[in-house]
Amino acid sequence: MTRHARLAVVASGRGRNLQAIQHTIEQGGLDATIVGVFSNRRRAPALAFAADRGLHHFALKPKRFHDRAAFDVALAEAVAAVDPDWVILAGYMRILTPKFIDRFSGRLVNIHPSLLPAYKGLDTHARALAAGETVHGASVHIVTDELDAGPVIRQGYIHTADDDTPETLGERVMSRVEQQIYPAALAELSSGRVVYRDGGIIRDGQPQKEAPNDCYDAD
């Protein structure tokens, strides 16, 4: 898509990637507008940030629905109402069902805190440290029905330190990697430089064989 992109962001927590995306928009690095921020938690700091920026925001309580699929149908309806080009998962802490994923097939983007395909799922920082990894990072990918298995658009990494804990490593991955590569990947998608087609990524008109993977160690 080459037009000014409409982004709907779905978040559960602090919304630090949401903040990075909005900051990039405000600085002119991403030709887009966040047309809505949605959450499963009414008191999510991400919603407070949206309110502070004057962005449309909306929360749904999962307990009001008889199962996960029913909740996802309602959430999808709320998101679809703002007519997004892209639906952006930014720290959304629920596993989506096909009821939501299929509604936005090919337009649903997530960031995962590992260098996929390594360490799908939870506790990625602890698992990377336990395995003795010397580098660790994050991946922006298209969401498919298989968890953390959609094609990767862009990655970034840092080197681990001998005294790292899951918390210190996670903080550095968030601040140095995630908040850099997520806006960058969205800019590529919204400009049309990167396209999701036939289950893969097309970059600059050619099938992407390997996602860009840049180092974000501090100078």
Rank of each mutant, 00 (worst) to 15 (best):
P212E: 04
E146M: 09
A149Q: 08
A187W: 09
N40H: 13
G200I: 10
V194E: 01
A48K: 05
Q22H: 11
I142S: 00
L122E: 15
G36T: 05
I111Q: 09
F100H: 03
Q208C: 07
R41D: 11
V143G: 04
F49A: 05
G170A: 04
R154Q: 09
R203D: 12
A48V: 04
Q179E: 15
E171I: 00
L147C: 04
F65D: 13
H4Y: 14
E146V: 15
H141M: 02
I153Y: 03
Y196G: 06
E133G: 00
I158W: 01
Y157G: 00
R16G: 03
H136Y: 11
G132I: 07
A149G: 05
M1W: 02
R127G: 08
E133L: 14
T24F: 01
L169R: 00
L116Q: 00
F65E: 03
D31T: 01
T24C: 13
S139D: 05
A211G: 03
V109Y: 08
G29H: 02
V79I: 11
G36Q: 06
D217A: 14
P62K: 12
N213S: 14
M174F: 03
H57T: 05
L116C: 08
P117S: 10
M1Y: 10
C215I: 10
K209R: 12
G36K: 03
D102T: 02
